[in-house]
């Protein structure tokens, strides 16, 4: 113990503040909220022990399952398009196009703009009346005005579009960094071998970006399961719960309904889902592998 301390004292000294912070603000709330799932907590007063009542309620709560399903659908609409958009934007600015810095700034702008403002603009673009911007544009190609956020089969996709627009810029930066780190010699060799640009992309660029794919896939997946603000700002979870995601439902239960114990159950369900997905992604995407 003493030798260990002598050798690594400096490390522990630097770690102590971080670990204390981690314990107080992460581990302690984490354990406390787990304890809370077995209680009925009225905020003031002593919590009452109710066993697995809240967990049982979750199993039979149709709305919670609908919220989970909505969240999964949101991920479907969101993850791949966000990655694709980020990659395409990164390829554009990496291609040596003129004013690449300018485009980088433009593409990145939604990321640094307040979500509330972006959501306001999105709501205005996708207004469900004839006066809505997108409805106005599609009227030129003969499409009837759409309800967008007021239609239970379109609303979730419109919200996913908002998130893609908002996050695309930051995935672009990750992919751009990844593209920059690919050895130029590999491209030269491929070209000498007579590979076409498309073939080079699929055989060289795309596989070598695997660590970036992994990182972006994890972060967008986690992000998509935590989606809350767009539903809160634009649809209020409607129409008919079509945009009620698991975090929105959790918020409603916890902070509107003061049903904090049940909200804690939902947060554990969410935690378990994100954990499992991350582990699966890690297994299939995350292995370090050499391609050459």
């Amino acid at each position: 113990m003493k030798r260990e301390w002598n050798r690594n004292a400096i490390v522990y000294i630097f770690l102590i503040p971080v670990i204390i912070h981690f314990i107080v603000f992460q581990i302690y709330p984490f354990l406390l909220s787990f304890y809370l799932t077995f209680m009925d907590w009225k905020v003031i007063g002593d919590p009452e022990f109710v066993g697995v009542k809240h967990w049982q309620h979750f199993l039979s709560d149709k709305l919670a399952w609908k919220a989970l399903w909505n969240t999964v659908m949101f991920s479907v609409y969101y993850i791949i398009p966000t990655m694709a958009l980020g990659l395409i934007l990164a390829l554009i600015i990496n291609s040596g196009v003129k004013m690449a810095g300018f485009f980088k700034g433009v593409f990145f702008l939604p990321v640094v703009t307040s979500f509330v403002i972006i959501a306001g603009i999105w709501g205005w673009l996708f207004g469900g009346t004839e006066a809505g911007m997108i409805n106005y544009l599609i009227s030129f190609i003969g499409i009837e005005p759409q309800l967008f956020l007021a239609n239970s089969s379109q609303a979730l996709a419109v919200l996913a579009g908002l998130s893609i627009f908002k996050v695309g810029g930051s995935t672009m930066i990750y992919y751009f960094a990844g593209l920059q780190s690919i050895d130029k010699q590999l491209y030269e060799a491929a070209r000498i071998d007579g590979a076409s640009a498309i073939k080079i992309f699929w055989k060289v660029t795309f596989p070598l970006l695997k660590p970036i794919h992994f990182y972006v896939a994890i972060t967008t997946t986690i992000g998509s399961f935590q989606i809350f603000d767009s539903a809160y700002l634009l649809t209020g979870g409607g129409p008919n719960y079509a945009t009620t995601t698991i975090v929105y439902y959790l918020y409603e239960q916890g902070f509107t309904g003061l049903n904090l114990s049940y909200a804690a159950v939902l947060s554990y369900v969410l935690f378990a889902i994100i954990l499992v997905i991350s582990l699966i992604q890690r297994k299939y995407l995350g292995q370090e592998s050499k391609h050459y």
Partner: peptide, 12 residues
């Protein structure tokens, strides 16, 4: 308005 189902405002 048509979007009244989920509209939050009609200020415009």
């Amino acid at each position: 308005p048509e979007d009244s189902i989920t509209a939050m405002e009609h200020n415009a």
